[in-house]
Design a protein around this nucleic acid. Structure first.
Lengths: 229, 229
DNA sequence: CGCCAGTTTGACCAAGATCAACGCAAGTGG
DNA sequence: CCACTTGCGTTGATCTTGGTCAAACTGGCG
């Protein structure tokens, strides 16, 4: 849900939402890390489900988490993938609207909501940082709405690969922890369409696919052009 | 962008993001209202454009605003409609990523970013309220991603009508300030598809369309069923 | 009255979904 | 070690939804 958190190891990227870049409240962040508990989940294990009480939030230590929703007729939508350093599960309501599942094996930090609230009371600057995360997340959600509402299958897949490369700091070889099915449900496409587009990129020499979960970006310019130019 | 703002006349709906519902910082909000200036725009006038400096944010007093983006090849995407009471233009970056335009004649309050920042410094609880708005907005964005990624044309239009009715507190007659084109760009559909779906709802007796900008919800249950049941 | 912009409807088309088969690598059990 | 299974990924054939193109309709206005 929240990408590129400023809490913890990504302090450097802190940009306050409505204020000029200020100093991060280190003391509060250290305290935050201390109230969190570590937990691990196996492949496809549920971290929380829809309608579960939203009494805590999480930060990914290692692995990949998918935030998703299942419709009555079986259609599935993945709202977000969370990688190491990302926060998720910061919800307004009392209950979860989405579920969170481990894509592979995953380790997370779990922060109780109550303790976080008390910490915010002591360190009000924390609210600004959560605000910042929320606004950053919102900007990401908006570019995803554009993608889902107005882009073709090729554009979506190209964007996905470039986003993946950027978020995982990959220059040429991107590893793809999630299944083709997950990619489809993230991009609003079927698994077959995802495969076909990847194959067509491969035929054109834009990418290579040494294994299904490892993709080489051979021609980044072509990929960027395919992702709308 | 931000719906159902807690600032100003909607104080009653305040729910803090990570804290139990607390009392709103009235003094700060009153101060906020005082730093805002009123401005009016005519039909289709641009309030701000992409790449304009993001040096202020707005609150709709009356009328409807669309937040949108134009792609190079002419495709357009509408991220959000803002009605009276909604805030928009609270962005992280230095420049706008979307533009804001008046759907009809519009009056807004305009708040300079610098003054708001100073106010937040004095009244740190304000950050929590902005955080709350951002999280609420994020939840809305996520349900819109689900709609754009996984729902059929009929489901999208049904959802749209129900959302419009709810946000404008309409029981039976909903007025639709935006054009069919705007609706299409909001739902990721063409204008023709929007028309066709509306006509099919009309033929089935689910709705009536006395004028293109006024729709009667004749059978709410059928509409809710059409919006995924 | 005729023009104009927005809306509606129809005929046709294409992108992507669906259905089905096949490939391939990792287990599993004899 | 090898047959068999299983789960995912890939590819092909066909179909459907919604897009495209075009024409008719509507109400407001000079």
């Amino acid at each position: 849900m929240f990408r590129q958190s400023n809490l913890g190891e990504r302090l450097d990227s802190a940009v306050s939402c409505l204020s000029p870049a200020g100093s991060a409240p280190f003391a509060a962040l250290v305290a935050l890390e201390q109230i969190g508990g570590r937990r691990s989940y196996q492949q496809d294990e549920e971290i929380y489900g829809e309608l579960d009480p939203a009494d805590c939030w999480y930060k990914v230590v290692s692995g990949t988490v998918r935030i998703c929703k299942l419709l009555a007729d079986g259609r599935r939508h993945i709202a977000e993938f969370c990688f190491a350093g990302d926060c998720f599960g910061i919800d307004l309501g009392r209950e979860r609207l989405f579920s969170a599942e481990a894509v592979g094996d995953v380790t997370v930090m779990r922060f109780p909501r109550g303790a976080t609230e008390r910490l915010i009371d002591e360190q009000p600057e924390l609210a600004r940082h959560i605000c910042d995360m929320a606004l950053r997340s919102l900007a990401h959600a908006q570019s995803r709405m554009l993608l889902l509402g107005r882009m073709t299958a090729s554009e979506r897949v190209a964007h996905f690969l470039l986003e993946l490369a950027e978020r995982r700091d990959a220059r040429r070889f991107v590893d793809v922890p999630m299944s083709r099915n997950d990619i489809g449900d993230y991009l609003g496409l079927t698994i077959e369409t995802v495969c076909r587009v990847l194959s067509s990129f491969r035929r054109e020499g834009t990418i290579a696919i040494p294994t299904p979960h490892r993709i080489e970006l051979c021609d980044r310019d072509a990929l960027e052009a395919a992702g709308e130019g």
